Simulated scan of single mutants.
Amino acid sequence: MSPSIRLDWDDVRLFLEIARAGTLSAAAPRLGLTQPSAGRRLRALETLVGASLFQRTSKGFRLTDEGEAMLLHAERMAEDAQALERKLLGQARGLEGGLRISSSDWFSNHVLTDPLADFTRAHPKVTIELIADWRMLDLERREADLVLRFRPFVGPDIVQRRFTTVRYGLYAAQAYLDGHGWIEGGTGEGNRLIAMDEALGELADVEWLRRRWPEASFALRSNSREAQARACVRGAGLAVLPRVIGDALPLVLLEVDEAPPGREVWLGYHRDLKHLARLRALVDHLVAAVPDLL
């Protein structure tokens, strides 16, 4: 690369997104670009540096040797830019501006939406962007300002606290019970279960179901608690659901001598944002609005 070359930071960001996503179609929307526009900018960048940064394959884009070398510098540039952004944002004063909140879909829908709506009514200059997704968004990269998830955070730069504990219950539709019956002390033979999909089969509630009723078969498995709940209402089988979901539906809460295991929810944000007034206000509001035990 010639010493006279001056790179545009937006083009470096595009290069990073393609390297991380592996395809133009996945990278472009993250930067608000169309795929053709992203392709043109990548070709212009490669012309500027005088080298191909990616090998185009049927499975996506692979970094060339030149691309690997550029990636090391680009990642350092991104880390510095993100640190500066967090530092400047953390020094902001006043309750105005945006906040990106990330949590799972069902927790967002059933627990967070009402208190977040109340917060925006009380602070009309604050805009909340709620990302209801199971993915673990990165606080270091500012993919989110505040994340709520079902496990503690790892990393010295994350400020975290236990937010609440979610109780779970075993549910069934009355129509299912009329057709199949249910005996708590049995092996579960003849019964049908609704549970998390195989990728999340290690979760405590799935293991609890398997241990309690080893001869029951699975009727439906999904990574969506909402989908599980709907299938349960339709009489597809027995389901372990968060009480905040199941108690609001036309389902029977089955009495068992050992309740399904609960799960703790953790709240975390980057330490550079600890002085951000609107974030502090939101955390205080959520802690006050959401019970310690759901």
Results as ranks from 00 to 15, higher is better:
residue 3 P to E: 12
residue 9 W to Q: 12
residue 21 A to E: 14
residue 22 G to S: 11
residue 23 T to I: 10
residue 24 L to G: 04
residue 24 L to C: 05
residue 26 A to W: 10
residue 34 T to N: 00
residue 35 Q to N: 03
residue 35 Q to T: 04
residue 43 R to M: 07
residue 46 E to I: 01
residue 47 T to V: 01
residue 48 L to G: 15
residue 50 G to P: 02
residue 52 S to T: 00
residue 53 L to S: 08
residue 53 L to F: 12
residue 55 Q to G: 02
residue 58 S to P: 03
residue 60 G to E: 07
residue 62 R to M: 01
residue 65 D to P: 04
residue 66 E to H: 08
residue 70 M to R: 09
residue 76 R to C: 03
residue 77 M to Q: 09
residue 79 E to G: 07
residue 80 D to V: 05
residue 82 Q to R: 07
residue 82 Q to K: 05
residue 83 A to C: 06
residue 84 L to D: 15
residue 85 E to H: 10
residue 86 R to M: 07
residue 86 R to I: 06
residue 87 K to Y: 12
residue 88 L to Q: 10
residue 90 G to A: 08
residue 91 Q to N: 13
residue 94 G to P: 06
residue 97 G to S: 11
residue 104 S to W: 03
residue 105 D to A: 05
residue 107 F to G: 05
residue 107 F to P: 06
residue 108 S to R: 00
residue 108 S to C: 07
residue 109 N to H: 09
residue 110 H to C: 05
residue 112 L to W: 01
residue 113 T to E: 06
residue 113 T to A: 12
residue 116 L to H: 04
residue 117 A to R: 08
residue 118 D to C: 03
residue 119 F to L: 10
residue 122 A to D: 11
residue 126 V to R: 04
residue 131 I to W: 07
residue 134 W to L: 13
residue 135 R to D: 11
residue 136 M to R: 12
residue 140 E to G: 05
residue 140 E to Q: 05
residue 142 R to S: 15
residue 142 R to T: 12
residue 144 A to D: 13
residue 145 D to S: 07
residue 147 V to N: 10
residue 147 V to K: 02
residue 149 R to Y: 14
residue 151 R to L: 09
residue 153 F to P: 08
residue 153 F to T: 01
residue 161 R to T: 13
residue 167 R to A: 11
residue 175 A to D: 14
residue 177 L to I: 01
residue 178 D to A: 12
residue 179 G to C: 03
residue 185 G to L: 13
residue 186 G to L: 10
residue 187 T to G: 15
residue 189 E to M: 12
residue 192 R to K: 09
residue 193 L to K: 10
residue 197 D to Y: 15
residue 201 G to Q: 05
residue 201 G to E: 07
residue 207 E to S: 06
residue 211 R to V: 02
residue 211 R to D: 09
residue 215 E to I: 00
residue 215 E to H: 07
residue 216 A to K: 02
residue 217 S to N: 03
residue 217 S to R: 10
residue 218 F to C: 04
residue 226 E to I: 13
residue 227 A to I: 05
residue 228 Q to G: 14
residue 228 Q to M: 13
residue 231 A to H: 03
residue 231 A to Y: 01
residue 231 A to I: 00
residue 232 C to S: 14
residue 232 C to D: 12
residue 235 G to W: 13
residue 235 G to C: 13
residue 235 G to S: 14
residue 237 G to H: 01
residue 239 A to S: 03
residue 239 A to N: 00
residue 239 A to L: 00
residue 241 L to A: 00
residue 246 G to E: 04
residue 247 D to S: 07
residue 250 P to G: 11
residue 253 L to V: 00
residue 254 L to I: 09
residue 257 D to N: 14
residue 257 D to F: 13
residue 263 R to M: 12
residue 265 V to D: 14
residue 266 W to F: 15
residue 268 G to W: 13
residue 271 R to N: 15
residue 277 A to L: 00
residue 280 R to G: 13
residue 283 V to T: 01
residue 287 V to Y: 02
residue 288 A to G: 04
residue 289 A to L: 00
